[in-house]
Amino acid sequence: MPATSKAQQKAAGAALAAKRGEQKVSELKGASKSMYDSMSEKELEDMASTPRHGKPEHKEDE
């Protein structure tokens, strides 16, 4: 599942770093904390590796 915004991609990257032990889980907040709890390492990797070009900073609510 690709990221739909730069903010979502950054949150996935932070959660992925915590899953891999590169960052403390206690440092996660908000979306990255919930992603850490609910997504697998593979799902986070897919979301964090989405190209940023052309993505909005934040996703627009519909």
Rank of each mutant, 00 (worst) to 15 (best):
M1A: 15
M1T: 12
P2M: 15
A3F: 06
T4Q: 13
T4R: 13
T4G: 15
S5C: 10
S5V: 12
K6G: 04
A7F: 09
A7Y: 11
Q8L: 07
Q9G: 11
Q9C: 02
Q9F: 07
K10L: 14
A11N: 04
A11C: 08
A11S: 04
A12M: 05
A12V: 05
G13H: 13
G13E: 09
A15G: 05
A15N: 08
A15D: 03
L16C: 04
A17N: 10
A18I: 01
A18H: 07
A18N: 00
A18D: 02
A18V: 02
K19N: 09
R20C: 12
R20D: 07
G21M: 02
G21S: 12
G21C: 11
E22T: 03
E22Y: 15
Q23S: 12
Q23G: 04
K24T: 10
K24M: 03
K24D: 08
K24P: 00
K24I: 06
V25F: 06
S26L: 05
S26M: 03
E27T: 10
E27P: 07
L28E: 01
L28Y: 01
L28A: 12
K29R: 11
A31M: 06
A31N: 14
A31Y: 10
S32Q: 01
S32I: 01
S32C: 10
S32L: 03
K33E: 09
K33A: 08
K33Y: 00
S34I: 13
S34A: 15
M35N: 02
Y36W: 01
Y36E: 01
S38Q: 05
M39H: 14
M39R: 02
M39G: 14
S40R: 03
E41Q: 09
E41T: 12
E41N: 06
E41K: 09
K42R: 13
K42S: 06
E43I: 08
E43R: 07
L44F: 04
L44R: 06
L44G: 02
L44V: 09
E45F: 01
E45W: 09
E45Q: 03
E45I: 09
D46V: 13
D46Q: 08
M47S: 01
M47N: 00
A48V: 00
A48Q: 03
A48M: 04
S49H: 07
S49V: 03
S49D: 13
T50C: 09
T50K: 02
T50Q: 04
P51Q: 07
P51A: 10
H53I: 11
H53L: 11
H53Q: 15
G54C: 15
P56K: 12
E57T: 13
E57R: 15
E57P: 13
H58D: 13
H58G: 15
H58Q: 10
K59N: 12
E60T: 12
E60G: 08
D61G: 05
